[in-house]
Each structure stands twice: as C-alpha cells, then as structure tokens.
Amino acid sequence: MSKETELVRNKAKELLEDGDVELVVGYEEGTYPSRTTPLFADTLEKAERLIWNPFCVNSLPKLLSKGHFEDKLAVFVKGCDSRTVIRLLQDNQLDRDEVIVLGIPCNGNVDLDKIKDKVDITTIIEVEVTNNGVNVKTEGSTEELSREEALYDKCLDCRFPNPVIADEVIGNEVSELPKNKNKDDEVASLANKSVAEKNEFWEAHFERCLRCYACRNACSACTCRDCLFDRDERSTWLAKGKTLSDNEAFHITRAFHVAGRCVDCGECERVCPVGIPVQKLNRKISLDMDNLFGIGEIATSEDDIDNPPPLGTFLTEDPEEFM
C-alpha cells in the first residue's frame, strides 16, 4: 500500500468515525490496479477500499453537483479538481458548509492510452511520477518513461499542482512542475493560421463527434439541469442528428456557454472518446476573456468565489468593440 493510500484511508476513517461527515468521496481500484473509479464511502469497511495513485484522474467534485446529497460529505481533490470546487461554489452547486475539501498535491496523472503500447497496463503494480519522468513498475519489469510519454496532455502544462481551496491538505506540497508543453502557444499558432486551415482543422475533428455529450457532462461549468442540447425538438438551428453542421453548432455553442467560467480542468478533452481537442476551443475563449476583460486566470483561490464571471455581470468599463 502506498503512503498516499494509507493517508487517504486514515483520513476518511477518522472523519467517518468522528461523525464529521456521512460520506467520503474518493477513488477505488477499477478494472485493473491501474484504473480507478469513484468510491462513495459511507462506512469504515468501504473506506478501506479507498486508494490514491497517479491514476486517480477524473474530477470528483463534479459528481457532487447534482443535488443528490443531503448529508455532510468530504471529497478528495487534486489541484485541478479544487478549481472545480470554486466553480461549483460560485454557481451555487455546492454548499461550502456541507463539504469538507481534502486537498492532495499532484505531480501529474498517467494516461493509460499513452502508455498502453509500451507496457502491459493489466500488470501495472505501482507508478511514480516525478519532475524528471515516470517510473512504471509492472509484474515483470520497471519502465522509465518521460513525462510527455506517460502523462495526460493536460498535466504537461499544469499550473495548479496544489489545491487552491482545501480545509486540509494531505501530503507534501508540490513545488513548481516542469512545463513540458505550452497549450497557450498551441492555441496562438492555430489562431494565426489561415481561415481555410482553421476550417479544415476543426471540421476534421468535429466530423468525428458522436454527440455523446461526455464533454458536457464531465464539465465543471456545465451544471444546467435542463440543457438546451436535450431540448433540440424546440430548436430549429440545432438538431439531434449527427451532421457536421450540427456537431459544429454544438461545440461552438457549448464553448461559448462556458466562456469566462471554464476552469481549464481539461476533463472535456480527456473524456472525449474520439479525441476532439475540446480544450483548444475553451482555452482560446479563456485567453480572449482575459484579453477583453482582464480577468486573468479564474478560480485560483477561495476569494474568487465572489468575482462574478465577466459575461454574467456588467461594468461600465467593459470593452465596446461594436460601438
């Protein structure tokens, strides 16, 4: 058992035992030790199944936003997930008094799709992620991979390895992570291409979209109970059918709906089954928002909860390009 797993289990048991919370939300082993799945632990027995490793990728706070929970609960968050907590608090999807945020600093999550050609993912025992690389230990051998080879793209230019909101931080703070990739440069270079090139780039991606709405459902900022994409029968401009135009209309609309509220967690891109670079769309808008409204990076501390999103408020000094 890893040190982190032990800390996570002990913390969960302590909170449940003391009656501080009714439920602890963490991860347990999924199909394989290298795959994790959310666990809602309401008993000490279940808390024994909790784990923590670099495969704990999906955002847990999002699972709490459905208003299903009446009891007080605790949730484990990484840096990126903690920004989701800010998003949900600001959107009134979570009640600050009802949730204990347990932050765990993170060095990066391992992308099984990236490493599956190099190691047999069914036999992975342990993985260690450091600033220099990723060591994957399997039943037969140890594989040393670079961060680029093993980590999710979203982790390669992570700016928030430590939780930005937490009632308690478990484990040691992570000092600055290496920047293995620069998403903003990629966005800028795409934006500088010709109209035809941009069109070709996006059409090739949007054409594959299955409209499964995983990006929407995994999104920290998508919390509408009744989403317009489920109400297509009332719409004349967006059909349920999968055509390139409808797919494009879906992506453009969704991107704009989360404008100024996207916390850059990258879940949309991670969950997409057909590899659409959704985050390239959202990041562009975030950069535009900063450019227009000077909001900088949003959801970086608990104080940000009181800063309304730029498109949800009006200031007399807002830019007026259309005058």
Binding site: L63, L210, R211, A214, V271
Partner: peptide, 13 residues
C-alpha cells in the same frame, strides 16, 4: 448511479 456522469459514451460505442 452516484458515479455515473449521465453521458452517452457507453451506449453510443
């Protein structure tokens, strides 16, 4: 169902 996101990946693939 607590952990299900309610998307349609499973059914579409």
């Amino acid at each position: 169902s607590l952990k299900c996101l309610g998307c349609a990946v499973c059914t579409y693939i």
